[in-house]
Protein backbone atom coordinates (compact mmCIF):
# COMPACT_ATOMS: atom_id res chain seq x y z
CA UNK A 1 0.00 0.00 0.00
CA UNK A 2 1.36 3.38 -0.95
CA UNK A 3 1.82 6.01 1.69
CA UNK A 4 -0.08 9.27 1.68
CA UNK A 5 2.43 10.91 3.95
CA UNK A 6 5.89 9.93 5.07
CA UNK A 7 7.86 11.59 7.82
CA UNK A 8 11.46 10.47 7.90
CA UNK A 9 13.77 10.75 10.90
CA UNK A 10 12.06 13.82 12.30
CA UNK A 11 13.71 15.58 15.20
CA UNK A 12 12.52 18.76 16.84
CA UNK A 13 14.65 20.64 19.29
CA UNK A 14 13.49 23.52 21.48
CA UNK A 15 16.62 24.96 23.00
CA UNK A 16 18.06 22.14 25.05
CA UNK A 17 14.91 20.06 24.90
CA UNK A 18 14.65 17.37 22.29
CA UNK A 19 10.86 17.24 21.93
CA UNK A 20 10.83 14.75 19.08
CA UNK A 21 13.80 12.50 18.54
CA UNK A 22 14.39 10.80 15.22
CA UNK A 23 10.85 9.63 14.63
CA UNK A 24 9.91 7.97 11.37
CA UNK A 25 6.24 7.73 10.69
CA UNK A 26 4.15 7.06 7.64
CA UNK A 27 0.46 7.20 6.94
CA UNK A 28 -0.71 4.66 4.35
CA UNK A 29 -3.44 5.68 1.92
CA UNK A 30 -6.98 5.29 3.21
CA UNK A 31 -5.86 4.09 6.60
CA UNK A 32 -6.47 5.11 10.20
CA UNK A 33 -3.34 5.27 12.27
CA UNK A 34 -2.88 6.52 15.80
CA UNK A 35 -0.16 8.20 17.73
CA UNK A 36 -0.33 7.67 21.46
CA UNK A 37 1.90 8.29 24.40
CA UNK A 38 1.92 9.80 27.86
CA UNK A 39 1.56 13.55 28.36
CA UNK A 40 4.53 15.46 27.07
CA UNK A 41 5.63 12.65 24.79
CA UNK A 42 5.82 14.99 21.81
CA UNK A 43 2.67 13.94 19.97
CA UNK A 44 1.26 17.40 19.36
CA UNK A 45 4.72 18.70 18.52
CA UNK A 46 4.96 16.00 15.89
CA UNK A 47 1.58 17.10 14.53
CA UNK A 48 2.76 20.67 14.39
CA UNK A 49 5.75 19.57 12.36
CA UNK A 50 3.57 17.71 9.88
CA UNK A 51 1.38 20.79 9.38
CA UNK A 52 4.31 23.15 8.97
CA UNK A 53 3.82 25.10 12.19
CA UNK A 54 7.24 24.00 13.44
CA UNK A 55 10.14 23.26 11.18
CA UNK A 56 11.93 20.05 12.16
CA UNK A 57 15.56 20.44 13.19
CA UNK A 58 16.30 17.28 11.23
CA UNK A 59 14.47 14.92 8.93
CA UNK A 60 12.06 15.42 6.07
CA UNK A 61 8.42 15.07 5.24
CA UNK A 62 7.25 13.65 1.92
CA UNK A 63 3.72 14.00 0.69
CA UNK A 64 2.52 12.58 -2.61
CA UNK A 65 6.10 11.95 -3.68
CA UNK A 66 7.18 15.53 -3.01
CA UNK A 67 9.15 16.90 -0.12
CA UNK A 68 7.10 19.44 1.80
CA UNK A 69 9.33 20.02 4.83
CA UNK A 70 9.93 23.68 4.06
CA UNK A 71 6.48 24.69 2.87
CA UNK A 72 4.62 27.31 4.93
CA UNK A 73 1.55 26.10 6.87
CA UNK A 74 -1.03 27.50 4.47
CA UNK A 75 0.60 25.75 1.52
CA UNK A 76 0.64 22.45 3.38
CA UNK A 77 -3.05 22.92 4.11
CA UNK A 78 -3.74 23.82 0.51
CA UNK A 79 -2.11 20.70 -0.93
CA UNK A 80 -4.20 18.48 1.30
CA UNK A 81 -3.03 18.03 4.87
CA UNK A 82 -5.73 19.23 7.22
CA UNK A 83 -5.91 19.15 10.98
CA UNK A 84 -8.02 19.79 14.01
CA UNK A 85 -6.79 21.09 17.32
CA UNK A 86 -6.49 19.63 20.77
CA UNK A 87 -8.35 22.60 22.18
CA UNK A 88 -11.02 23.51 19.67
CA UNK A 89 -9.94 26.44 17.50
CA UNK A 90 -12.98 27.23 15.44
CA UNK A 91 -13.67 30.78 14.30
CA UNK A 92 -16.22 31.19 17.05
CA UNK A 93 -17.87 34.35 15.79
CA UNK A 94 -18.27 33.08 12.27
CA UNK A 95 -21.10 30.83 11.24
CA UNK A 96 -20.56 27.13 10.64
CA UNK A 97 -20.82 27.79 6.94
CA UNK A 98 -18.31 30.62 7.05
CA UNK A 99 -15.90 28.42 8.97
CA UNK A 100 -15.94 25.98 6.09
CA UNK A 101 -15.73 28.69 3.46
CA UNK A 102 -12.58 30.02 5.13
CA UNK A 103 -11.06 26.57 4.76
CA UNK A 104 -11.98 26.65 1.07
CA UNK A 105 -10.13 29.94 0.71
CA UNK A 106 -7.18 28.44 -1.10
CA UNK A 107 -9.42 26.59 -3.54
CA UNK A 108 -11.50 29.64 -4.44
CA UNK A 109 -10.22 32.10 -6.97
CA UNK A 110 -12.19 35.35 -6.86
CA UNK A 111 -9.95 38.34 -6.31
CA UNK A 112 -10.71 41.78 -4.96
CA UNK A 113 -12.16 43.21 -8.16
CA UNK A 114 -14.35 40.20 -8.87
CA UNK A 115 -15.72 40.34 -5.32
CA UNK A 116 -16.45 44.06 -5.47
CA UNK A 117 -18.14 43.79 -8.86
CA UNK A 118 -19.78 40.49 -7.94
CA UNK A 119 -19.12 39.06 -11.36
CA UNK A 120 -21.21 36.12 -12.54
CA UNK A 121 -18.20 33.87 -12.11
CA UNK A 122 -17.68 35.03 -8.53
CA UNK A 123 -21.35 34.50 -7.71
CA UNK A 124 -21.27 31.04 -9.22
CA UNK A 125 -18.13 30.19 -7.30
CA UNK A 126 -19.70 31.37 -4.03
CA UNK A 127 -22.88 29.42 -4.70
CA UNK A 128 -20.96 26.26 -5.44
CA UNK A 129 -18.75 26.73 -2.40
CA UNK A 130 -21.80 27.20 -0.20
CA UNK A 131 -23.42 24.09 -1.62
CA UNK A 132 -20.27 22.11 -1.04
CA UNK A 133 -19.99 23.47 2.48
CA UNK A 134 -23.54 22.37 3.18
CA UNK A 135 -22.79 18.93 1.84
CA UNK A 136 -19.81 18.57 4.18
CA UNK A 137 -21.78 19.96 7.12
CA UNK A 138 -24.49 17.38 6.47
CA UNK A 139 -21.92 14.65 6.15
CA UNK A 140 -20.40 15.63 9.49
CA UNK A 141 -23.83 15.72 11.10
CA UNK A 142 -23.95 19.44 11.78
CA UNK A 143 -25.99 20.37 8.72
CA UNK A 144 -28.69 22.10 10.72
CA UNK A 145 -26.25 24.64 12.14
CA UNK A 146 -25.27 26.24 8.82
CA UNK A 147 -25.99 29.81 9.90
CA UNK A 148 -25.24 29.45 13.58
CA UNK A 149 -22.13 30.99 15.10
CA UNK A 150 -19.65 28.23 15.78
CA UNK A 151 -19.33 29.16 19.43
CA UNK A 152 -23.03 28.61 20.02
CA UNK A 153 -22.76 24.94 19.13
CA UNK A 154 -22.57 22.18 21.73
CA UNK A 155 -19.16 20.76 22.51
CA UNK A 156 -19.67 17.62 20.47
CA UNK A 157 -20.99 19.59 17.52
CA UNK A 158 -18.02 21.92 17.72
CA UNK A 159 -15.72 18.92 17.48
CA UNK A 160 -17.66 17.71 14.47
CA UNK A 161 -17.64 21.14 12.92
CA UNK A 162 -13.90 21.29 13.33
CA UNK A 163 -13.56 18.05 11.41
CA UNK A 164 -15.97 19.39 8.81
CA UNK A 165 -13.85 22.51 8.47
CA UNK A 166 -10.77 20.38 7.96
CA UNK A 167 -12.64 18.33 5.36
CA UNK A 168 -13.51 21.51 3.48
CA UNK A 169 -9.84 21.70 2.55
CA UNK A 170 -10.47 18.56 0.55
CA UNK A 171 -7.55 16.83 2.26
CA UNK A 172 -5.85 13.55 1.49
CA UNK A 173 -4.57 13.39 5.03
CA UNK A 174 -6.57 14.37 8.07
CA UNK A 175 -4.80 14.86 11.38
CA UNK A 176 -7.04 14.79 14.43
CA UNK A 177 -5.62 15.94 17.73
CA UNK A 178 -7.56 14.31 20.56
CA UNK A 179 -10.89 14.44 18.76
CA UNK A 180 -12.84 12.69 21.50
CA UNK A 181 -11.41 14.61 24.42
CA UNK A 182 -14.26 15.52 26.73
CA UNK A 183 -16.75 13.23 25.06
CA UNK A 184 -18.68 10.55 26.88
CA UNK A 185 -18.66 6.93 25.78
CA UNK A 186 -21.70 7.31 23.60
CA UNK A 187 -20.43 10.43 21.86
CA UNK A 188 -17.08 8.73 21.32
CA UNK A 189 -18.83 5.82 19.66
CA UNK A 190 -20.64 8.18 17.31
CA UNK A 191 -17.31 9.72 16.50
CA UNK A 192 -15.69 6.34 15.83
CA UNK A 193 -18.48 5.51 13.39
CA UNK A 194 -18.01 8.88 11.75
CA UNK A 195 -14.27 8.35 11.23
CA UNK A 196 -14.84 4.90 9.83
CA UNK A 197 -17.47 6.24 7.46
CA UNK A 198 -15.13 9.00 6.41
CA UNK A 199 -12.31 6.67 5.44
CA UNK A 200 -14.71 4.25 3.78
CA UNK A 201 -16.39 6.88 1.61
CA UNK A 202 -13.58 9.27 0.83
CA UNK A 203 -10.07 9.00 -0.43
CA UNK A 204 -8.57 10.05 2.84
CA UNK A 205 -6.13 8.83 5.44
CA UNK A 206 -6.63 9.69 9.10
CA UNK A 207 -4.06 10.09 11.82
CA UNK A 208 -5.24 10.39 15.39
CA UNK A 209 -3.68 11.56 18.58
CA UNK A 210 -5.83 10.10 21.28
CA UNK A 211 -5.80 9.36 24.95
CA UNK A 212 -8.97 7.32 25.03
CA UNK A 213 -7.63 3.81 24.56
CA UNK A 214 -11.05 2.44 23.75
CA UNK A 215 -11.25 4.72 20.74
CA UNK A 216 -7.66 4.07 19.72
CA UNK A 217 -8.05 0.31 19.87
CA UNK A 218 -11.37 0.41 18.06
CA UNK A 219 -10.43 2.46 15.02
CA UNK A 220 -6.70 2.16 14.47
CA UNK A 221 -5.14 -0.11 11.93
CA UNK A 222 -1.76 0.75 13.33
CA UNK A 223 -0.64 2.41 16.51
CA UNK A 224 2.60 4.21 17.16
CA UNK A 225 3.72 4.98 20.69
CA UNK A 226 5.87 7.95 21.56
CA UNK A 227 7.57 8.41 24.89
CA UNK A 228 9.77 11.38 25.69
CA UNK A 229 10.05 12.21 22.04
CA UNK A 230 11.10 8.77 20.92
CA UNK A 231 9.18 6.11 19.10
CA UNK A 232 9.11 3.13 21.44
CA UNK A 233 6.67 0.84 19.66
CA UNK A 234 4.62 0.47 16.53
CA UNK A 235 2.16 -2.20 15.53
CA UNK A 236 -1.42 -3.41 15.47
CA UNK A 237 -3.66 -2.68 18.46
CA UNK A 238 -3.18 -6.23 19.74
CA UNK A 239 0.60 -5.95 19.56
CA UNK A 240 0.63 -2.61 21.30
CA UNK A 241 -1.62 -3.84 24.08
CA UNK A 242 0.85 -6.51 25.06
CA UNK A 243 4.06 -4.59 24.45
CA UNK A 244 5.97 -4.36 27.75
CA UNK A 245 7.69 -1.09 26.83
CA UNK A 246 4.34 0.55 26.20
CA UNK A 247 2.95 -0.65 29.49
CA UNK A 248 6.08 0.61 31.18
CA UNK A 249 5.78 4.03 29.56
CA UNK A 250 2.20 4.38 30.68
CA UNK A 251 2.26 2.69 34.07
CA UNK A 252 5.90 2.90 35.09
CA UNK A 253 8.35 0.09 35.72
CA UNK A 254 7.29 -2.76 37.98
CA UNK A 255 8.70 -2.29 41.48
CA UNK A 256 11.04 -5.24 41.27
CA UNK A 257 12.76 -3.82 38.21
CA UNK A 258 13.53 -0.47 39.83
CA UNK A 259 16.94 0.09 41.23
Amino acid sequence: MANALEAKNISVQFGGLLAVNNVTFDIPNKSIVSLIGPNGAGKTTFFNVLTGLYKPSAGKIVYGGKEITDLPPHKIAEIGIARTFQNIRLFGLMTAQENLLVAMHSHLKSGITATILRTPRQRKEEREAEAKAQEILDFAGVGKWTHEFARNLSYGDQRRLEVARALALNPKVLLLDEPTAGMNAQESQVFIDFINKLVAERDIAVMLIEHDMKVVMAVSQRITVLDQGEKIAEGSPAEIKSNPRVIEAYLGKPKAARK
Binding site: L53, H74, A77, A82, F85, A103, R165, A166
Partner: peptide, 10 residues
Amino acid sequence: LAASMMGVPL
Protein backbone atom coordinates in the same frame (compact mmCIF):
# COMPACT_ATOMS: atom_id res chain seq x y z
CA LEU B 1 -2.93 30.34 13.68
CA ALA B 2 -6.07 28.42 12.88
CA ALA B 3 -6.54 30.53 9.76
CA SER B 4 -3.09 29.67 8.45
CA MET B 5 -3.74 26.01 9.23
CA MET B 6 -6.86 26.26 7.08
CA GLY B 7 -4.92 27.42 4.07
CA VAL B 8 -5.24 31.19 4.47
CA PRO B 9 -1.93 32.81 3.49
CA LEU B 10 -1.44 35.25 6.36
